[in-house]
Every structure is written in C-alpha cells, then in structure tokens.
Simulated assay, not measured.
Amino acid sequence: MYVALQDGDSDQINIAIDGPAGAGKSTVARMVAGHLGYVYIDTGAMYRAVTLSAQRLSITAEQDARLSDLLPALRIRLEPGERGQSIFVNDEDVTGLIRSREVTRQVSYFAASGVVREVLSTMQRELALQKGVVMDGRDIGTHVLPDAELKIFLTASVQERALRRFKELPSDQGVSLEQLEGEIAERDRLDEQRDISPLIQARDAIELDSSDMSIDEVVAAIVKLSRTKLAEAK
C-alpha cells in the first residue's frame, strides 16, 4: 500500500476518529485533515477494498487460508484528489465499486477477520509514524493508534444515520428507509460483538453526537480540540 505522507512535524499530532456506520466519520475526517493540512487515511476503504477483492473470487470471511493467499497480492493505494480520495486495487480504480450495497453488507464480516485486521492494522500504524494523520474507523483509538493525541468517538442515532444513507442513494435503488435502519442496526451489532477489536469507545476519547449537528459544526469542534491538544503537548 502506498500513501504520500508529508515529512514529520513536531507541530502535528495524530487524530483518531472512531464510531459506528453512517456517523459521518469519513467526511468529517477528510475535512478535518484539509483544515489542518494533515493526511487523511480512510481505513474503512481499505477493508472495503479487501471485501470487494474477496467477493470477486468467491472467498468468504471465514476462509482464513484463502484470505492469507489473497492479501499479499493486493496493492491498495489511497490517492487524494480534487474530488476526494480515490481507491485503487492493483491499479484499478474501485472508488465507486467499494461503496456498493453488496460490499457494505459484507464488510463487517471481513473486518472481523483476524487475518485481515492483522495485515491492515500494521499498514495503518506505519502510515501514522510521521504524525500529522487523521485516521477514521472503528478501532483506531483502541487498537490501531492507542497513543493518538486526540481521540474522537463520533456517533448519531440509528434513525439519523439511516436517513443520511437514504438521502445518498439513487432514487432507483428501491431501498426503504426502514430497511436501511435494520441494516445499520445489524452492522452495529456485528461491530460491537466481534471478538477481534470490537467497536467500543476508548476511555480517553471525546464523544461527539452528530445527530443534531451539521458537518461543518462537527469539523469545527474537532479542529478546535486538536489545536487545544497541540498546545497542551508543547
């Protein structure tokens, strides 16, 4: 995996943003990174890329041996651009494909795989060594970057998260709001109850409930907290 990182800077910290599906982590993390001049690392996209690749080969999340053979052959690249971050697997642009409902419904199972998590978590830690990274996921503050200077647990009600997803879907998808609520609630259950790196709030994380907040308000709050943490670290 290759991600362009700036040189280390003593005036930078690492920021971990965790939370359930649909809480707006990726959008918020990307915007926070832009405000601070940091590098945004979308760990969810990495798990989705593995999920898509496995699905194409009819590999299930329980087939550890086949996953162990697949992972070394995958070259995952996160490439920033004017329209946001693009995701490439072996030089194929899969940015849109990894957001399909088929991948969304299965990614939690692959994220629960110890084989997958070991490989991707190692990559993610290496990317954060130089500081100045904003990383979002479900176990960043508890497992991947437990020493991150700022940890945020971003959440929202199931109903609000489902509504956000519903508004993003094309009108011809034929998916009801109630169906999305059920899928998100089930994904929460899977993420919270998995044996390996479950979704839990780190003890030193700051919880932000975005149910009644705009994206800009959430971003402003995290940027303010990051500047406070940086001042405290000096």
Rank of each mutant, 00 (worst) to 15 (best):
A23L: 04
K234S: 09
R99D: 09
E62C: 02
N14K: 11
G141F: 05
E118N: 10
D147F: 04
A45F: 01
I98P: 12
D188S: 06
T51D: 08
D18Q: 07
I200T: 14
S210K: 03
G84M: 13
A45K: 00
A16V: 12
K234T: 06
L78F: 04
L150Q: 03
V103L: 07
G19P: 02
K234G: 11
R189K: 14
A162S: 12
M46D: 02
L154K: 03
A112M: 03
D18G: 07
R117K: 04
R101W: 01
R161V: 09
L97I: 07
T104N: 15
R164Q: 12
R187W: 08
I15T: 03
V32I: 12
E186C: 10
Q130M: 09
A221V: 07
L97E: 07
A148W: 00
A220C: 07
D209P: 05
I87Y: 00
S113T: 10
L120M: 10
S226C: 05
S58E: 11
R30G: 14
L120V: 09
Q159F: 02
E118M: 11
D209F: 01
V3N: 14
A21Y: 06
S113I: 14
E232D: 03
A162H: 06
S176P: 13
N90K: 08
S58C: 07
D11V: 00
V89Q: 13
V133P: 05
I184L: 15
E207G: 08
R165L: 11
R30S: 14
V175I: 15
A45W: 06
P80Y: 01
R83N: 15
A33F: 01
S214Y: 05
S157R: 04
S10N: 15
E183T: 14
I17T: 10
A221Q: 13
L190Y: 00
Q85S: 09
K167I: 03
Q201I: 15
Y38E: 05
Q173F: 04
A111H: 03
R105E: 15
E207D: 08
E217H: 11
S113G: 03
M123K: 14
E232F: 01
S100E: 00
G22F: 01
D191R: 12
A221N: 07
I200M: 13
E183W: 01
S211E: 05
E92K: 06
S86P: 01
A33C: 03
S58M: 08
